[in-house]
Design a protein around this nucleic acid. Structure first.
Length: 796
DNA sequence: GATTAGGCTTCG
């Protein structure tokens, strides 16, 4: 298949032949005569190159009409394209996601996945010599001309820095390394150790890389700062290093970083986006780098130097085996100076009996309690020596990869008190161990938010119900109630009537008519609720700022525990003239847990006024302790030390606890200044006065849902946001804390959208809708919101 | 323009 790269919109070189006619994606059908047609679209998804045998490849991609926002939503503007043989291989090498391509010489077939992916009912198939592909590359103004781009410098360091803005680098093949030289290299990582502390001033990363020359070369990177080290997460990652010195040791070549060293790494899996991983703010990266990474990926995929099974979930663990575990930290507890317990899970259940490690409850750092489901799937990991030190700084909720973890079956230690139900004939219980030292790459690493492995795990663990506050409060916990569908819909079928509450004199329209009208209008419609989002109702609760209009999610307890834990880790002494410190004894929540003395601070002036039960500043506590104390004090303000003075925790956490209510501040609009709240001449302090005294702009709770409406003429997505409170007759604030409020919302959506029943049984709703324009991705979209409408229980 | 480490299972 000829592949042409058209630069600058066809100003030079290859051009799309003039005799070809463009056919919009939406007009393609099984009967389309394709011999004189071409399709133009943006690559919105590029699948991996799949090898079926010798030179037999297949690759799936999705292309989308570029100006698709102008078409109506019923048109299919995205289409699956399947490439075979050399066409697949060439496409994989030449095209990146987001590229605009022109495709000719295709055939049209039926799409077997149309039902599932909701894309075009047809497929485009590309194979053989007839297929023709043009990649449109629009060069940025700041970049070099195409002619200059083809010139390559032979110097390892940037040359002509004065004349050209873009520097070129030469990369040495690993088979051609001359002792003493300083070079730039690309390679695939075949072995690595996480950076470890040396006896000198630096951390050291030790790795081995290879490239198409099949040469394996060891690399030793010394850097004082951890963030300057290569960000390697797994074997197969791709690494680019600038300015490494070639040394020889023990008869083989070794690369060591030298002055001006820089490193960038990439995920090594073919097909994925090429995203450079570096903490460096300036680094060179252009199309040639992209191609170098992609060709290394394709080459490496065919080699067998990578372990066959790279990911082992807890459900597939073999006793006695060593493996890498990707998991989420639920909580941790120090055992002694050389050992820390990490309780982790990955959303799968380990099938083997587990050794139960007993720890002092007061030493546990993590959320106040966890759902039984999570605890049932969680495993103990004992990390020793150098890793115990790293583990002490991990925050509950963090996503981790633990390298070379050992599924130990013979725990001989009496240091860790343990119980297990061992009886004859039963398998030895497992305990996971990360042994001391760095052999075999042993270590722990936090996976960053943009890591695909982290995101995949996050999707899995977030599909489980959220954790509850405490065991005893399980029944009235928001997450539990909202996540649980009613036990028997038939037995509990209530009738709800949805009516308009506005006084507009408007004719009722069909949804099809609404869709044909423009923005900034009000409509009256009669429709049924086909579906709603989010399905997990607690996710509809949001926090929003009335000042900057931003909307954010309500953080979960695992995350909040991390913020509290981080704050108490960096906790120092607090000395403020207007605060007096003291301690409060908090009784243990469970009978066996001991009392804990909490450091609290009280405002001097309020003490003078006898108002000692109103506001308490709490330092160095856990989330659970803050919640617990909020039962006894009117307002609890978690604080930490800042240069000897007092400061609020990071505003991702509530700045104020009022009973069960957690009040958050806007990170963007708040300017925290800790002042003594002025209680003078005030009967009762309220949240507004406290927020004002501390320079915090409080966030409001809101309910945000998306309703899919239909009426036989059309379906229409409408948001419920501004008038959600009057629709459900529940205030979002109540929904955040009250079981009754959550029940009411649950019952309403269940009645309006009874699961499993036919369309005829669905109630009709009389709704008032408003339409408005929203700019997204540089284009205007018409959106709809349900307003002036109310769902009330029908009177029997 | 020094120094570090130089893979290769713990032993709890």
């Amino acid at each position: 298949m000829p592949v042409h790269v058209v630069l600058d919109g066809a100003s030079s070189g290859a051009q799309v032949p003039a005799q070809l006619m463009r056919i919009p994606i939406s007009r393609i059908s099984a009967t389309t005569d394709c011999c004189d047609k071409y399709v133009k679209g943006k690559v919105v998804h590029k699948g991996p190159l799949v090898a079926l045998g010798d030179e037999e490849f297949v690759l799936k991609t999705v292309i989308q009409e570029e100006d698709s926002h102008q078409s109506s939503s019923s048109e299919h503007t995205s289409i699956n394209m399947v490439l075979f043989g050399s066409a697949a291989k060439e496409f994989s090498e030449a095209v990146n996601q987001e590229d605009v391509v022109v495709v000719a010489g295709f055939t049209v077939g039926n799409s077997p996945t149309a039902q599932k992916d909701n894309l075009h009912p047809c497929n485009l198939n590309l194979s053989g010599d007839h297929a023709c592909l043009y990649v449109l590359r629009f060069l940025l103004r700041a970049s070099q001309s195409p002619a200059a781009k083809t010139k390559r410098s032979s110097s390892p360091v940037p040359e002509g820095a004065k004349s050209a803005k873009v520097s070129k680098y030469m990369y040495a093949p690993l088979s051609d390394l001359k002792r003493g030289a300083v070079v730039n290299v690309y390679g695939v990582v075949v072995f690595f150790k996480q950076p470890f502390k040396t006896r000198g001033t630096d951390f050291c990363s030790s790795l081995k890389i290879t490239d198409q020359s099949n040469q394996r070369v060891g690399c030793t990177i010394f850097c004082e700062k951890l963030e300057d080290h290569p960000k390697i997460f797994q074997m197969g990652d791709i690494i680019r290093m600038h300015r490494v010195k070639i040394q020889s040791f023990g008869g083989s070549v070794n690369l060591v970083n030298t002055f001006g060293f820089s490193v960038v790494t990439f995920d090594g899996r073919p097909g994925g986006a090429v995203v450079p991983r570096t903490s460096s703010k300036t680094f060179n990266f252009d199309q040639e780098d992209r191609r170098a990474v992609e060709s290394l990926r394709i080459w490496a995929a065919d080699q067998d130097f990578l372990p066959a099974v790279t990911k082992i979930p807890l459900s597939a663990v073999q006793p006695k085996a060593y493996f890498d575990l990707t998991c989420q930290l639920l909580f941790k507890a120090p055992i002694d100076t050389t050992c820390t317990l990490l309780k982790v899970w990955d959303g799968t259940k380990c099938p083997h009996p587990l050794l139960d490690v007993l720890v002092e409850p007061s030493t546990i750092e993590g959320p106040p309690s966890l759902s039984k489901e999570r605890l049932d799937m969680a495993v103990n990991v004992l990390v020793y020596d150098n890793h115990a030190e790293v583990a002490r700084n991990l925050k509950p909720g963090a996503y981790l990869r633990i390298y070379n973890i050992h599924a130990n079956t013979n725990p001989t230690s009496n240091k860790v008190p343990a119980t297990s139900e061992r009886s004859s004939g039963q398998a030895d219980p497992l305990v996971f161990v990360l042994h001391g030292g760095t052999s075999y790459g042993r270590g722990v690493r936090i996976l960053p938010d943009d890591s695909p492995d982290m995101q995949e795990l996050q999707r899995v663990v977030e599909s489980f119900p959220q954790d509850t506050m405490t065991d005893s409060e399980l029944n009235d916990c928001m997450m539990e109630v909202w996540s649980t569908p009613p036990e028997s819909p038939e037995a509990f079928q209530e009738q709800f009537v949805t009516e308009r509450t506005c006084s507009h004199a408007l004719k009722q329209l069909t949804l099809a008519e609404v869709k044909q009208s423009g923005p900034d209008q009000t409509f009256h419609v009669r429709a049924q609720l086909r579906s709603y989002r989010p399905q997990r109702l607690h996710q509809s609760l949001k926090l929003h700022c009335t000042k900057c209009k931003s909307i954010k999610e309500v953080p979960d307890d695992v995350f909040l525990s991390g913020v509290f834990s981080e704050a108490s880790r960096t906790q120092g002494p607090i000395s403020e003239p207007w605060l007096q410190s003291g301690t409060v004894n908090l009784p243990g929540r469970r009978p066996q847990s001991p009392c804990r003395a909490l450091t609290v601070l009280l405002a001097t002036e309020l003490i003078g006024m006898g108002k000692t039960k109103e506001i308490v500043f709490l330092s160095g506590s856990t989330l659970g302790e803050a919640c617990h104390l909020a039962e006894a004090y009117q307002f609890v303000i978690p604080v930490t030390s800042s240069q000897g003075g007092v400061s609020l925790l990071d505003l991702s956490a509530p700045f104020l606890f009022q009973g069960r209510k957690r009040i958050y501040g806007c990170k963007r609009c708040s300017h925290v200044v800790m002042k003594e709240p002025d209680g003078d001449g005030v009967e009762r302090l309220d949240e507004k006065m406290i927020a004002e005294a501390m320079g915090v702009v409080p966030l409001q709770y809101g309910l945000l849902m998306q309703f899919e409406l239909h009426d036989g003429t059309e379906t229409l997505e409408a948001l419920l946001w501004r008038d959600a409170e009057s629709f459900f007759h529940v205030s979002p604030e109540d929904a955040a804390t009250s079981q009754e409020a959550q029940n009411r919302i649950r019952r309403t959506v269940d009645a309006l959208c009874p699961g499993g029943s036919g369309v005829a049984e669905q109630p009709w709703m009389d709704l008032c809708l408003s339409s408005y324009l929203v700019e997204k991705d540089g284009h205007d979209h018409v959106c709809y919101q349900i307003c002036h409408s109310s769902a009330t229980q029908a009177q029997h």
